[in-house]
């Protein structure tokens, strides 16, 4: 039982770390602010969801084993943190992209820009 749970936790942590690492590589590889936002904010959210999932699995397993309330608190707080992270991350990315666009950083390699046409 514990080995299965440990393996599940390890897999979740590994997926989370791989996606967070890909986000960092994306910052270095992509050409302009918008494509970097894609790599940075989104892949890191996905990675962090999996790290949170690992914590939830650990907390629920410990709750079933010991029956102490603190592990339930741990799991619920982690879920709330992941939800808050997802919402603030999306809003923050939106705000950065909008601010960048209004400051005049147009998407540099771009096949189409409907927003420039709409604003004229």
């Amino acid at each position: 039982m514990t080995t299965i749970l440990d393996t599940a936790i390890m897999i979740c942590l590994a997926i989370g770390l791989i996606f967070n690492a890909l986000g960092v590589i994306g910052i270095l590889r992509f050409p302009d602010v918008y494509t970097r936002l894609h790599a940075e904010t989104k892949t890191t959210t996905f990675g962090t969801i999996f790290i949170g999932l690992a914590v939830v699995i650990y907390g629920l397993a410990a709750l079933l084993e010991t029956g102490e309330g603190q592990y339930l608190t741990l799991s619920v707080h982690t879920i709330i943190a992941v939800v808050a992270l997802a919402f603030t991350n999306a809003t923050g990315a939106h705000a950065i992209a909008r601010a960048a666009y209004r400051c005049g950083y147009k998407p540099k390699p771009a096949v189409v820009d409907r927003m420039a046409e709409a604003n004229q």
Partner: peptide
């Protein structure tokens, strides 16, 4: 807008306030 922004590869840059159209930056059109 939040769903689109959280889905990787698409990022909401702006909203047309009158028609509620969204301007979405896509990494691969």
């Amino acid at each position: 807008a939040n769903s689109i922004t959280l889905t990787p590869g698409t990022l909401t840059v702006g909203v047309d306030e009158e028609t509620n159209d969204l301007f979405v930056h896509m990494i691969h059109v």
